[in-house]
Design a binder for these strands. Structure first.
Length: 283
DNA sequence: CACCATGTTCCTTG
DNA sequence: CCAAGGAACATGGT
């Protein structure tokens, strides 16, 4: 699931369902997910606590809870890693095989499922402090973006994945934004012209905003995470027929560029796949 | 068997 | 000290 748009859509769903609910029991099936928080500390902080709010920062989810004892507030941080999912189920629904953490909310269970266990659910908030500006707010300005890019000779595609430059862009939307901006993923960050930086800034915002819009039009399915519509490929259930392709280059190696028809290329940068069009993205 | 996968962090090398 | 590259984490799909 996990780039900014998917996390944002998830946050909106959880914001609708979680506030007001009290955690009765905490079941941890994989302590790795809590790192570096201990199971004992998490259980102590969460048991009896009531959800107050849900927010998002980059690819992170922030859950604010009011602890059982006093007025003291608890903040829990969530990250989906590569394969994480969070959803509510009715109590009679058996938890999935890779349910890492289960919070008993009374009538329902809150499930954090993660097949690869790269995700996190923790009381350690230090990761958030290192994040760069939120791309869809005024904090992310072309000027600030340009200043960051000037400091690095890394390929621009790799730099877009640096969460301290801008928070929330992942491997898919990095390729998509560069395609829309007509910029080669191999160009050194500090060699982009100011015009290119401005264009890319706009396309990063556009691609993320469109993806949120797409995902948020799909209703969540409370009984499982399988069909909540928050997926990258294909078409969402109920989406109109004229909706063509969500992604223009990602995972389309060898297929014709939708703009010029030449085959989309796949290259490897920093051990991750990059997809782009040679003709439309020169320098 | 081989290679690939939406992410982050740690280690090594230069 | 920093930048850059690669491996590691863990499981599943093709």
């Amino acid at each position: 699931m996990p780039e900014l748009p998917e996390v944002e859509v998830l946050a909106r769903h959880l914001r609708r369902d979680l506030p007001g609910k009290t955690i009765r029991k905490v079941q941890v099936n994989r302590i790795r997910i809590l790192r570096p928080t201990s199971e004992r500390k998490l259980r102590a902080a969460l048991t009896g606590a009531k959800f107050k709010s849900v927010s998002r920062r980059g690819k992170y989810l922030l859950f604010e809870l009011q602890s059982k004892a006093g007025r003291k507030n608890v903040v829990m941080l969530g990250h989906l890693g590569m394969t994480g999912k969070m959803f509510l189920t009715l109590k009679n629904v058996p938890p999935p095989k890779h349910a890492a953490v289960i919070l008993d909310l009374g009538k329902t269970n809150f499930i954090f499922e993660d097949t690869r266990y790269f995700g996190r659910l923790t009381l350690d908030l230090s990761a958030v402090a290192k994040l760069g500006p939120e791309p869809l707010t005024g904090d992310f300005t072309p000027e600030r973006f340009a200043r960051e890019l000037k400091r690095s000779r890394q390929a621009i595609k790799v730099k877009l994945l640096d969460q301290s430059v801008v928070a929330g862009v992942g491997n898919i939307y990095a390729s998509e934004a560069l395609f829309r901006a007509g910029i080669s993923p191999k160009t050194a960050a500090n060699r982009l012209t100011l015009a290119q930086v401005k264009k890319l800034h706009g396309m990063v915002r556009e691609v993320l905003a469109e993806a949120i819009e797409f995902g948020s039009t799909v209703p969540i399915n409370l009984s499982g995470a399988k069909s909540d519509g928050l997926f990258y490929f294909g078409r969402a259930v109920g989406a109109p027929d004229f909706y063509v392709e969500r992604l223009r280059v990602y995972d389309r190696a060898g297929k014709p560029c939708q703009h010029c028809g030449s085959p989309i290329r796949r290259i490897v940068q920093a051990a991750r796949s990059t997809f782009f069009c040679l003709k439309c993205q020169k320098v």
